[in-house]
């Protein structure tokens, strides 16, 4: 379970969000460029410090200034897949997936076992010895997902994970994401600006506009005319005007 309340003054507006994600649930953060989505992920990951707020992960706070808690990013155990997948191009697919496990000093055979399992689960076992710089966009996204899941994260976050994918890879990555999030019962946040992604992966949608929650609800109820950055109050949602 993730519970986050964050506030941060940005250049053009203030980011003020409060939301939670249940284990096994995929929440999509939707909004146009510059709405504050990636900043939100970076704050939760511990890569950015908010001005105020609280982030609780699996019952224990990882950021709570009132208690003087700010767990560093490397100790938060959050699987974070960046927009361009950020696979390490100079390492093989296998070394990429093993990276987080080795960083945690797991015994060699445990690392090998887990890497094998994830190579298998994401259907990239053939790519194992290939340098990650030489694989396709869809394959990179699978490697990034496997690498994030291999550390058995307490939270999974993906920033625009489907943007650079062809139709087939897109289906594959989405299916793998949903299956593993359910099975591992991890709370999961996906950032996107595309409607199709919402309908295909989301259990719940939060539309963010200028740093505020503009609409929240079921993907099926996402209003057709919700133009995410001209966000006016939307009837039927829990939305509010953000201007």
């Amino acid at each position: 379970m993730l519970e986050a309340t964050i506030a941060k003054k940005l250049r053009d507006f203030s980011l003020e969000l409060s939301f939670s994600v249940k284990p096994g649930e995929i929440v999509v953060l939707m909004g146009t460029n510059g709405a504050g989505k990636s900043t939100t992920l970076n704050i939760i990951a511990g890569l950015l410090v908010p001005d105020s707020g609280k982030v609780v992960l699996g019952g224990s706070p990882v950021y709570d200034p009132s208690q003087g808690i700010n767990v560093p990013a490397e100790d938060r155990r959050i699987g974070y897949v960046f927009q361009n997948s950020a696979v390490f191009p100079h390492l093989t697919v296998r070394e990429n997936i093993a990276f987080g496990l080795r960083a945690r000093n797991l015994p060699r055979h445990t690392v090998a076992e887990r890497v094998d399992r994830w190579l298998d689960l994401l259907d990239i076992i053939d790519l194992s010895p290939v340098k990650a710089g030489n694989i396709s966009g869809g394959q990179k996204q699978r490697v990034a997902l496997a690498r994030a899941l291999a550390i058995e994260p307490a939270l999974l976050m993906l920033d625009e994970p489907f943007t650079a994918l062809d139709a087939e890879s897109d289906r594959g990555v989405k299916a793998a994401l949903k299956k593993n999030v359910r099975e591992m019962q991890i709370p999961c946040i996906v950032v996107t600006h595309r409607r199709d992604d919402v309908l295909e992966v989301a259990d719940r949608v939060c539309v963010i506009c200028h740093g505020k929650l503009a609409w929240e609800g079921n993907p099926a109820g996402l209003p057709e005319d919700i133009d995410v950055c001209r966000c006016k109050p939307v009837p039927g949602g829990t939305g509010q005007s953000c201007r």
């Binding site: 970076n42 990013a73 490397e74 699987g79 950020a86 990276f99 987080g100 960083a103 990034a144 550390i151």
Partner: peptide, 18 residues
């Protein structure tokens, strides 16, 4: 260098030296 590489490595638990 794209900061995403180092940030990813951080979230994966790597120390600054690593």
């Amino acid at each position: 260098l794209d900061p995403a590489y180092e940030q990813t490595a951080r979230t994966l638990g790597a120390s600054p030296f690593r």
